[in-house]
């Protein structure tokens, strides 16, 4: 199946990229099914279809504001619970809604019990525009229980950096539009040790999430 091939190729690519600092140069690719399906050893060793991380990042120490305007301490409030973490912004038309939307579809396939065991956390890289209210409206399209965090961009950048994701300041274009940075990956933290164990690139297919979320809900080791 070409789709599998592609996933595998991305998986391979990211496994390589991880060795550096999650540069993720492969994520833009989208169509061609053939090609460099080479690195598969990571995949065989794990029940997950996502990429098993060889370096298990700590959950970032991050205190921001949630969509109800309340302070939110990421470590404390997601302690001992599977957590999917993505950095993005709501005026991003392509990668951010695609990624969060696909997770939303897969989450809806879970039983209510499974669903309760997974936190989906979206951290804004464009806090200027992503107010708690804007975030809530946007996230509600994907999952009304998704957690949205916004606040000091410097804190967000530091948190992202700690898990290998480079976030830059928004750039104002000549035409007045603003371009922000989004992460190219979703990190899954397991409840056992609250560390990142599985990674999903922005090109990840819904069926990969559908396969993996029940495992993540159970906290199955990667």
């Amino acid at each position: 199946m070409p789709r599998t091939t592609r996933t595998t190729r991305l998986v391979g690519a990211v496994a390589v990229a991880l060795a550096a600092a999650l540069t993720l140069s492969a994520c833009g690719s989208s169509g061609d099914g053939s090609g460099a399906a080479k690195v598969t050893q990571q995949k065989d060793a794990t029940p997950y279809e996502g990429t098993k991380l060889t370096r298990n990042f700590e959950k970032p120490d991050l205190q921001l504001t949630d969509t109800s305007g309340q302070p939110f301490d990421l470590r404390k409030q997601t302690d001992g619970k599977t957590t999917l973490l993505f950095f993005g912004y709501t005026s991003c038309p392509d990668v951010c809604p695609t990624t969060m939307g696909d997770i939303g579809v897969a989450m809806k396939k879970l039983s209510p019990e499974e669903r309760q065991k997974i936190n989906v956390v979206f951290v804004s890289t464009d806090p200027q525009r992503d107010t708690p209210k804007v975030l809530r409206t946007w996230l509600d399209s994907m999952g009304s229980d998704f957690i949205g965090l916004t606040g000091d961009l410097e804190k967000v950048k530091a948190a992202a950096k700690s898990v290998g994701i480079m976030i830059e300041d928004p750039v104002v274009n000549p035409d007045g539009t603003v371009t922000s940075t989004h992460g190219a990956q979703v990190l899954a933290f397991l409840p056992s040790d609250d560390k990142a164990h599985v990674l999903y690139l922005s090109g990840t297919e819904v069926k990969t999430y559908e396969h993996d979320l029940p495992l993540l809900a159970k906290g199955v080791a990667a």
């Binding site: 993720l24 833009g28 990668v95 695609t98 830059e168 371009t179 940075t181 190219a184």
Partner: peptide, 27 residues
């Protein structure tokens, strides 16, 4: 065009001879 971490605007896009210009998610 989406790059790994942001978007870049492009002024024009080639439609190759006997080929296709394909838009796609993440691209």
């Amino acid at each position: 065009r989406s790059t790994p971490s942001r978007m870049e605007q492009v002024g024009s896009l080639d439609v190759p001879a006997h080929g296709a210009l394909q838009f796609s998610r993440g691209g």
